[in-house]
Nucleic acid binder design. Structure first.
Length: 266
DNA sequence: ATGGCTATCCCTGATAGA
């Protein structure tokens, strides 16, 4: 089974690049974030169908929006924090940041973790609360013994080695200890960062700011992650970043992350 | 060239991103 995650930063603008990514990598599952639209366009859905992909979508106008594309039909689709609620009143997350589905017998979540704005801001409080709530969702719905994947833009660079220019970023909402601890708490459900398993030396990134020539200057962060429960993670044969996807005309600011598992996609 | 932000909408300015 090949699974990918990619923050497309507007799925409409990235329609041609999406087709290219599917052709180049032929993933069994592709988790998308930042659709920035309530639904996938009809012509995109038709194209996906022609390519043999189903889509489970939790979209939103302008902001956020997540999806799971899969060669097998997604089963038991879960949208947002449905069933357990997000806030104290039991209401759901006002942002479309999470969708889950079972594919090939694996429970898969595509997540777009909150950015967090400035450290200490209301958005930062929401970011930390969101990660805590995600852990509670995993505890409520799942066991670390089952095959499960959480993939997406986690908006946290877990380690110093995931930051090209630490002096520029260490005080940011992606790197401060509170943010890293929040992500570690999600991981402590029983997940393994499958890219990190293969590349603990660091120095590989998945996001580069559009501004200030960040990409050609190599000023990147690794904030797009594929987590798997331990037994499933142990079957991961390869994990990589498609850095080339960040090049050329009208790229997303994120590159796709790919992981291969010795797990039957049938 | 890997290139000087980008995408969206209440669209010519504000908001959000990370």
């Amino acid at each position: 089974m090949r699974i990918m995650t990619w923050n497309v930063n507007s799925v409409k603008v990235r329609a041609e690049r999406l087709a290219g990514v599917l052709e180049r990598h032929e993933p069994d599952v592709l988790c998308l974030q930042e659709l920035k639209t309530p639904e996938l366009p009809a012509e995109m859905l038709a194209d996906l169908k022609d390519r043999g992909y189903h889509a489970a979508v939790h979209g939103q106008k302008t902001y956020n929006g997540v999806a799971i594309l899969s060669k097998a039909e997604p089963q038991d689709v879960l949208v947002g924090f449905e069933g357990i609620g997000f806030d104290a009143d039991g209401g759901d997350d006002p942002h479309a940041r999470l969708i889950g589905a079972v594919v090939y017998g694996v429970r898969i979540y595509s997540g777009y973790f909150p950015n967090g704005g400035e450290v200490g801001s209301e958005k930062f409080v929401y970011k930390l609360a969101w990660m805590r709530r995600l852990r509670e969702l995993l505890d409520a719905r799942h066991s670390a013994d089952e095959p499960l994947i959480v993939a997406g833009d986690v908006n946290v660079a877990p380690f110093d080695g995931d930051v090209a220019k630490p002096d520029r970023w260490n005080e940011s909402t992606h790197c401060v200890p509170e943010a890293r601890e929040g992500l570690q708490h999600v991981e402590a459900f029983g997940l393994a960062d499958v890219f990190y398993q293969k590349h603990q030396e660091g120095g590989v990134y998945s996001w580069w700011d559009y501004r200030q020539l960040a990409f050609p200057k190599g000023d990147g962060l690794r904030i797009d992650i594929i987590y798997a429960t331990k037994d499933l993670a142990a079957t991961c044969s390869d994990a990589r970043v498609d850095r080339d996807e960040r090049k050329g005309k009208q790229p997303s600011d994120h590159a796709p992350v790919i992981a291969d598992f010795d797990w039957p996609a049938s």
